[in-house]
Design a protein around this nucleic acid. Structure first.
Lengths: 200, 200
DNA sequence: TCAAAACGTTAACATAAGATAAGAATTTGG
DNA sequence: CCAAATTCTTATCTTATGTTAACGTTTTGA
């Protein structure tokens, strides 16, 4: 990878998971790439195996499915977050969803093959296993909390939660994406917002 | 751990994640316990940090929250599956939900402290990191698929899916638990079943 | 710069789901 | 073995959501 800036941001970004010493980091960096996605282009697509995991330097992406010709947005990622079509990446099966850049987006990329190479490299293997474990655990917890909100909360409660904790999503995403993210239609979210307005 | 039967079942059960050689397995076993839960007793409870991960030898458990005095079932586990209140186990924060034995249930237990000990043991560390990674990735994929079904499918579609793929749940769990698992009320599930009956 | 597309709100109507309660069948536990 | 609890269904009523369409506003992109 080239840019020293990007490298530094990435190193800091993943430091909550793993820290490499200089020798390890040197090898690790040889397995990284930079990628620029123009707005509206796809990081992953249905029917294609997603072979990359990305770290967002700048920009944002959304995950969406197409059902009955309609795009249904399921998730978002922003700066300093990892992004992949995880099931596809981990199982090597074709993705079921799109991952699309919502703005011009710069990413640090680790390919599946490079991860395998590092997992097979005695110098990096242990830390890569640990890195993978901690990342997977982190996202497992995210999913658990989100699942739980679907089981125990109403759409209105989920929206109120999002107002408190989802600043990036609330501020940067159009409302009809947020609606699907909450599991409802855009029309329904508009009504919920009106209800909340009147109550307050 | 005592029972050789249990050990063998457990070893086979986790072999899809990791295989230990005899020396490793010997040490690993020193960090396992057996636990028997009587029907309706709790493996995890709100307000208490869950410090164990279990492998179900016999029996089954359900995960549930209490909201407005009502029990809301979010998940089930059966024989040969791992069970824990994952967020609590991983973060060391109090659990937000109950995990309850639905029948007399026998488990192989690994405590948090024992996992830490093995992660710190040079002989086991690498494989334990890998084991943890693969388990977390496995459950991450489960969550991703389940989340996706909440975003893109109707309750009726989720129930039809469950009829195809959730034999244990359909056959062994009472319908009102299944309803909450699908994100709806028991009354609503009963109506969905009637609709499906009439259509067929 | 300007036409087209995207976005958010609102209305009207149809449908599904939540809440509550009653009743029958089954299971549980002492 | 039997009373109590659980489970499931059904009915009624209320409420929320989905669907479609219209409208004004904002954004986009050529």
């Amino acid at each position: 990878m080239e840019s020293q800036d990007a490298v530094a941001v990435f190193r800091k970004g993943i430091s909550k998971f793993i820290e490499f010493n200089e020798a390890e980091w040197h090898i690790f960096c040889q397995h990284l790439d930079l990628k620029k996605l123009k707005k509206k282009t796809h990081f992953a697509e249905p029917g294609i195996v997603c072979s990359e995991i990305g770290f967002i330097l700048t920009g944002s992406v959304r995950f969406f499915n197409v059902k009955d010709g309609e795009e249904i947005t399921g998730y978002f990622c922003f700066e300093n977050e990892l992004v992949s079509s995880y099931r596809s990446f981990l199982t090597r099966e074709p993705s079921l969803n799109y991952v699309q850049a919502l703005e011009d987006t710069e990413l640090v990329i680790i390919t599946y093959n490079n991860i395998q190479a590092m997992l097979a490299n005695p110098i990096l293997a242990y830390k890569m296993e640990r890195f993978g474990r901690l990342v997977a655990e982190y996202y497992l917890i995210c999913y658990e909390e989100r699942m739980s909100s679907f089981i125990t909360k109403t759409p209105e409660e989920r929206y109120l939660d999002l107002l408190n904790t989802g600043r990036d999503i609330i501020q940067r995403m159009p409302q009809h994406y947020i609606a699907h993210f909450l599991g409802i239609t855009p029309v329904s979210l508009s009504r919920i917002r009106r209800r909340i307005m009147k109550a307050a």
